[in-house]
Design a protein around this nucleic acid. Structure first.
Lengths: 156, 156
DNA sequence: ACTTTTTAATTGCAATTGCAATAACTAATT
DNA sequence: AATTAGTTATTGCAATTGCAATTAAAAAGT
């Protein structure tokens, strides 16, 4: 049996490529659909919070959001209480695509777990959510992973 | 509960960043350690096969391998039976780092599943391996995913 | 034997990414 | 109130990525 993280990497690369190919006709490359889904579910979210949710660099988030804005999928409204914060609000165009975006996510799950029992499907989602939480915990203490790597380093 | 593929994307991005940071002191950026692990486990593997295993573009694979070669981690030996095939063979330097690379993979698993029972850990690995197989199956029939996306397209 | 098709590795290109540093604004401290 | 520290968004930069097209070699078909 393979280390679970190898499978995770494979699946992530494969689905990213498929998603980008599927949505390029709508000018939604580069995982922009991931950002759009989150904004649709959290209207008014800020870039910083979105970057945290998606585990991408704030600058990466900025550029994806900028492209979505240029494409007419969202507007960036300054928060009256805090001039720096830009609230990301989906447009009607984004709302029109929401169903297809969720349909894509659901299709991935359907095909990816096509031979699963409902119980297995639920189990997978639960276990992965826990792994994600554990990995996010490393953000607050990155050295913990290093400490867990026990073998000798063989420095150059 | 989140769609499993969201968790997969999050985990993949987070671990990729951590891995790159951990191995930059050894000049192993850009997921090169993933390639090196596979080559260590499959000495003599060709670039095409490696690209298939890792689900990356052959050109991406070429450039990662080229950097590993430049860094002294492997040699590229022409296959006598087929002039085109270049067999990738790990060097002693690569062997010396093998333990640390496996240690990193193991550490990821340890931390990522720190609150799991052994049974849950095994279950996760099995379910993910099956998902990976299902997703790879899409390579042979990419339209199947599109067909599964049922919602209306709302073309531009 | 000759042509066509497939395979393996490669290159140019445009686009995305993360990191480091910066700007602008807000909060906290003295 | 003034200075310091922290937050939010941003930009320059170097590096990686996937796609499309190219080269070279092998296999298949005629």
């Amino acid at each position: 049996m393979q280390n679970a993280f190898r499978s995770i990497g494979l699946i992530a690369r494969a689905t990213s490529i498929m998603g980008n190919r599927l949505f390029t006709p709508k000018n939604l490359q580069a995982n922009q659909f991931l950002y759009l889904l989150r904004i649709l579910e959290n209207p008014g979210i800020t870039q910083a919070d979105l970057a945290t949710q998606l585990h991408v660099d704030p600058s990466t988030c900025l550029r994806a959001v900028r492209k979505l804005s240029a494409g007419g999928y969202l507007t960036r409204e300054a928060d009256p209480t805090n001039q720096r914060r830009k609230r990301l609000v989906p447009t009607a165009k984004a709302q029109a695509d929401a169903a297809q975006l969720h349909g894509y996510e659901q299709a991935l799950l359907t095909v990816g777990t096509q031979d699963f029992t409902p119980g297995e499907r639920l189990m997978l989602q639960e276990l992965l959510a826990r792994v994600a939480a554990n990995i996010e915990g490393l953000n607050d203490d990155p050295d913990r992973l290093m400490a867990t790597v026990k073998r000798a380093p063989h420095e150059n």
